[in-house]
Simulated scan of single mutants.
Amino acid sequence: MGFGDLVATAAAHLPLYSGVRQSLERLYTPDDPAFRVDYLADPGDPGDFGPDSVTWRVMANPVAFFVGAIPAVIMQLAEEGIGKGVDTFSTYKTDTIGRSQRTLSAALATTYASRGAKKALLAEVAQRHAKVRGPLSDGGRYTAFDPERMAFVHLTAGLGFAEAYHRFVAPLSAAERERAIVESLPGAADYGRFEIPHTQAGVDDFLRSFAPRLNRRPELDSFLAVARRRSPFGRLATPLQGLIVDAGIDLLPEWVKDRLDMRCSPARRAAANAVLRSLAAFLPKLMKDTPPQLACRRMGLPDDYLFRKPGDADYRLGAPDAAR
Rank of each mutant, 00 (worst) to 15 (best):
A170M: 06
A170R: 11
L172Y: 05
L172H: 08
I181N: 10
L185T: 10
G187V: 01
A189D: 14
A189Y: 03
A189C: 06
G192W: 01
F194P: 04
P197R: 01
D205Q: 13
D205I: 01
F206H: 08
L207D: 13
R213H: 13
L214K: 02
N215W: 13
R216Q: 12
R217H: 00
R217C: 08
E219L: 02
L220A: 02
A227S: 11
R229D: 12
R230H: 14
R230Q: 14
F233P: 00
L240D: 11
G242L: 01
I244M: 14
D250L: 00
D250P: 06
L251M: 09
V256T: 06
L260M: 09
M262A: 13
P266C: 05
A267V: 12
A271E: 14
A271Q: 15
A272K: 01
N273Y: 13
V275E: 11
L279T: 07
L279A: 15
F282C: 08
F282I: 03
M287P: 00
M287C: 08
T290P: 04
P291C: 09
P291G: 09
P292H: 11
G300F: 00
L301H: 05
L301W: 00
L301V: 04
D304H: 07
D304A: 11
R308V: 01
K309A: 13
P310A: 11
D312N: 07
D312P: 02
